[in-house]
Every structure is written in structure tokens, then in C-alpha cells.
């Protein structure tokens, strides 16, 4: 653990200087989407009365905090990882130090967890100020976001480690992250989707996290222990398989 903490520490040293720049992407934009959609689109949705006692703003807050974690987990694993191998080559210098592959990856993931937790806590605070939090279970949301973020960060780490240029990232964004962000029940229930797309949503880790976050912040959305275990278990599978793939990809790049 200590070597991974040293890697984490080096990211913090950088972040201490660059955090201001990350505020826009991590906090301002998601909050703008929340307010814009929640109040703007929500005006029409709430007039229709389909959501019952819940405002549309309240409905999208748990989805929005989840999709923010989803994007953050992915982005932190794209350019920074590619650069570490191909541009700044810092991973190579880590490999020359007495660190194992799991220490290097562990340091990356610790930093990502730190980012996920801080972002979702701040986001929830803002949402609470808008009166969009209706359950004390909301304290569990940052941890669900951390799990979701890691569940995507690990396989994306594996992908980025195998790339030699960033041209594939636009494909990953257009055909992976953006569609999943739209069709995983963040802005509307997946039951509104045609059945083929609905299947995609069920496979998406984002949908599972959104369901859990929604149950944790909205009133009257009960979730059975079994369903909860299923959702979290599914995310854990992504995390474990992703970690394993990332270890293989890192080893291939650093030990040859």
C-alpha cells in the first residue's frame, strides 16, 4: 500500500496546482446541466405530471451525479494514461523505481477515487441546496459514484495503455461514452427506450449506478437488498475484470 500511496501523493502534488482548472469540467458543467435540464426541461415535464410527487430536477440529480462520475472515471483514464506511456513517459520512470505494476495502477486509482469522492460530495451539496435530496441514504451516493468511476476507469486504463495515439479516443467517446451517457436512464427511464437499446442500458454500468443513486436520494423509490446487491455486484465485476485487464496491458507496455 505504501508504494501506491507515494504514486497517489505525486498526483496530489500536481493537483494542488491544477485543481482550479478541473472545477469547470467536474463541477460547473454538471451543475449547469442539472439546473438547465432540471428547471428548464423540468418545467414541461412537471406540468405533465408523469413523475408524480417528484420534480424532474429531483429525478435527474442522482442520474447526473452518476454520469459525472462515469465521465470522470473515463476521462482520467484516457489522455493521462496515454501520455504516461507515450508522451511524458512517466510510467516508464515509475517502472524503473521499486514499484510493482499493481502499485502504479493502485496510485492511479487512489487519485481517481479521491476525485470521484470530492466531486460527488460537492455536487450533492449543491443539489441539496436546490432541495433535490430527499433521503438520508444520499450519504451512500459518493461511494456508489466511486465504485462506478472505478468500474469504468479500470477497463479504460487497459484500453488507453494499448494505444499509441489519441485518435481512438474520439471513437470511444462517440460510440461508447456519449451513447451510454444518454441511454442509461440518467435523463429518462430506460423503459421509454426500444427494447434493443434497453438491453444496452442494462449492460451499461452507468444504468446500475443510476438506479442505486436514485433509490438513495428520491422519496418512495424502494430497492430490495437483492436488487441492491445485484447492481453493486455488477459494478464490482467490471472493476475486478477491468483491473485485471489493466494489469495485463500495463505489464505488456512496461515489462518487455
Amino acid at each position: 500500500m505504501r508504494p501506491a500511496l507515494a504514486v497517489f501523493e505525486s498526483y496530489l502534488t500536481v493537483y494542488r496546482r491544477t485543481w482550479r482548472g478541473s472545477v469547470l469540467g467536474s463541477f460547473v458543467l454538471p451543475v449547469l446541466v442539472m439546473v438547465g435540464f432540471g428547471l428548464g426541461v423540468g418545467h414541461f415535464v412537471d406540468a405533465g405530471g408523469r413523475l408524480g410527487p417528484v420534480r424532474y430536477l429531483d429525478y435527474i440529480v442522482p442520474g447526473q451525479v452518476a454520469v459525472t462520475a462515469f465521465n470522470q472515471g473515463s476521462f482520467e483514464s484516457m489522455w493521462p494514461v496515454l501520455s504516461g506511456f507515450e508522451w511524458s513517459r512517466t510510467y516508464h520512470s515509475l517502472a524503473a523505481a521499486p514499484l510493482r505494476i499493481v502499485d502504479i495502477l493502485g496510485g492511479d486509482l487512489l487519485f481517481i477515487v479521491f476525485r470521484l469522492l470530492t466531486t460527488s460530495v460537492v455536487f450533492l451539496g449543491i443539489a441539496a441546496a436546490f432541495g433535490a435530496i430527499h433521503s438520508p441514504w444520499a450519504v451512500a451516493v459518493p461511494f456508489v459514484c466511486a465504485l462506478l468511476g472505478l468500474a469504468v476507469a479500470t477497463p479504460v486504463h487497459a484500453l488507453s495503455a494499448r494505444m499509441t495515439s489519441d485518435s481512438y479516443f474520439s471513437l470511444l467517446l462517440r460510440f461508447g461514452l456519449i451513447p451510454l451517457g444518454l441511454f442509461s436512464g440518467v435523463y429518462f427511464p430506460v423503459t421509454a427506450l426500444p427494447s434493443a437499446l434497453r438491453l444496452l442500458a442494462y449492460l451499461s454500468p452507468l444504468w446500475h449506478a443510476t438506479e442505486v443513486c436514485r433509490a438513495a436520494t428520491l422519496p418512495g423509490v424502494p430497492m430490495s437488498a437483492l436488487a441492491l446487491a445485484g447492481h453493486l455486484g455488477y459494478l464490482a465485476v467490471w472493476l475486478v475484470v477491468g483491473f485485471w485487464l489493466a494489469v495485463l496491458a500495463f505489464r505488456r507496455k512496461l515489462v518487455s
Binding site: 508504494p3 507515494a6 501523493e9 502534488t13 500536481v14 513517459r89 516508464h92 524503473a96 521499486p98
Partner: peptide
Amino acid sequence: PQLDSLDPELTVAENLVTYARYFG
């Protein structure tokens, strides 16, 4: 190493200090 692998986001001194931390 043959190719430089310094961390461009850290200062000169920080590059040394963070690297030292990897050695405990």
C-alpha cells in the same frame, strides 16, 4: 533512461522529491 521521462507537470525539485518517495 535514454528517453527523458521527467514529469512535465511537476517542478524541477518536485520531480526529485516525488521520485524519492517511490523509494520510501
